[in-house]
Amino acid sequence: MSALRLLSTIDMARFVARGFLRFDAVVPHEINEQFMAEAGETAEPDEGFKGSHRDAFAANAIPEVQAGTPLANAYEPGTAPARLLALPLVAGTLQSLLGPEIVFDHHFLHVRLPSRDPSRGPNLSQHTHQDSTIDPRQAFDVQLMYYPHRITRDMGGTRFIPGTHLRKVSEFAIGRYQNVVGQQHVVCEAGTLLFLHHGVWHGAGANQSDRTRYMFKIRLRAAGRQTRAWAIEDYRPPDKQRAIFFLKSPPEENTVETVLTTPEPWFEQDTGRLEYINRIKLWRYLTEDPEYDADYWLTRLDENAAAGNR
């Protein structure tokens, strides 16, 4: 297991704050090529853009896998997904986020066909949504998004909104949010990976190019202890709170506290502070430290309650 590339504490804090980690062009070329060969060519269904790709999927080499399968047993050794998951960066990042025992939830080959024929229906982007269903847990699943070939802006790419992962919403109930300040579109080289907290709001872009776009997603969950699983040995929480609001110099960069209290551009002026509080709660969960705080946001509430002041 020494080959695992575990996340640093600051990278974990970034994931907690923004709900994603992105690694560009980290999957070797031969795995990308093998994956594209195993995925095969996906033709446009007879029903047009809205049609199912099930027939094409039946012919490709990506297996059906039962939900709940231990990740180690999900893919045949030597296949592209197995080789991808064995990469030290991938295995280390997944272990950091989910702990050593990981279970397969589902995977899907996302295919966005080019806009060749307008008579087959409008070529639309996917509405903004949060995957699965309302999920009230503090624990989280990880969605590994794998881009096996180069994605240009006109190919659409995955659109996602950093920092939305801690909002409890009901899947496509957020479809009305067409555009959000700070949204990102995945434009990348082949072999790029996105590790998403399951709650991040996202959607597929419309493919306006003349090439089919593929993205392979694997959803994974912790089967055992999820916490303190990254390279945490050097981490020490601060022994005192720093000054807040009235400051004579900028806050120190690259500290957990600064990362957890950095806003996203779409934050509302009141709920942005609640976002900080929910990030701090998630950091408490991951570090197993019920007293951790950044900039006094939870201490202000906790200490009053502890003193019996309600």
């Binding site: 982007s125 067409q178 300040v181 419309a206």
Partner: peptide, 25 residues
């Protein structure tokens, strides 16, 4: 107050707006 998100629906048929089509409000 500042705009943080938006959507447009054009019943005139002049333009089809969709998710992710603009990054600036």
């Amino acid at each position: 107050a500042p705009v943080v998100a938006w959507a447009l629906y054009d019943g005139s048929g002049e333009r089809l707006h969709m998710a992710g089509d603009e990054d600036s409000p």
